[in-house]
Design a protein around this nucleic acid. Sequence first.
DNA 1: CTCATCTCGTTGAAACTTCAACTTCTGAGG
DNA 2: CCTCAGAAGTTGAAGTTTCAACGAGATGAG
Lengths: 158, 158
Amino acid sequence: MTTTDGVRWLSSDELAAWRSFSLMLARLPAALEEQLQRDGGLNFVEYHVLAGLSDAPDRTMRMSGLAVLVNSELSRLSHLMRRLEKRGLVRREPDPGDGRFTNAILTDEGYAHLVKLAPGHVATVRKLVIDALDENRLASLHRCSEDILGAIDACDAE
Amino acid sequence: MTTTDGVRWLSSDELAAWRSFSLMLARLPAALEEQLQRDGGLNFVEYHVLAGLSDAPDRTMRMSGLAVLVNSELSRLSHLMRRLEKRGLVRREPDPGDGRFTNAILTDEGYAHLVKLAPGHVATVRKLVIDALDENRLASLHRCSEDILGAIDACDAE
DNA sequence: CTCATCTCGTTGAAACTTCAACTTCTGAGG
DNA sequence: CCTCAGAAGTTGAAGTTTCAACGAGATGAG
């Protein structure tokens, strides 16, 4: 299916699917952030930092582990944690056992903030995604996501 | 399916689907931008500005129309266009017929840049999305995207 | 005509992210 | 020991986006 210029351009079905998907890719994160920002003054990454810490033992994680969890670079996380720390939602201290590491810790205040925010966030995720699809399509979306993630990993591995 | 606290939390299937989808939502745009940035020094929005202009009559669109097309605010677009203008890829001039409007115009240089970049971008979209899914799943992804976009619109309309 | 108003677009400041140094700490090899 | 390589984090500067205020052109009512 190579065209004269050697490039496999998209068929009209493929193009329509890509357009729709790509618009959704831009709008859904914006819609989710809008709710988090409005109700809790947090963006998506900040919310997941708090959520990740709340699930961790002692509500504590290393910065580097947290960075992987929220899919973000260490530098960005460091700046972001400084802001959350200034708001009293988290706290940082060097790992007593190994001074190279920094432990990020969710404060009681941060936990309380998360607890206040979580129901609204889940409700938004339901409204915009989970309940917008029937069971089969959600399962299909799940597989699509896995396949795309697989393709990205394969691509990263060259 | 309301739990004791009145919140409909996610089932384990739903949670797994959401986790996977939400990771993809973060990684795919980063992967696409990585290619565009590397090969053409453009981010996703900038690429679509050039692509949108190249499809428009006279390679010209109003700023406000372009903003809707690339799903971005006018202010952001204005800053972005200033940078693209400085690189000679686009040009702006007030609409001769109605001075309230500004026309954004793709220069020959901008068009050439786009032509150079498009094949690689399409190849990446194919590799990461289109060809990573079979025909049925791509169709299903298309419908999922439409449904989610519909839910967002419904939500915006309160 | 002119005033009020509306939309379009720009601007500068603040907020956030990215990038490239740089510091600190540890563990390995001499 | 000593030092050297390497990973973890931080920092400041540069780049980008967001936010709120503003300016300029068109339109319609009086």
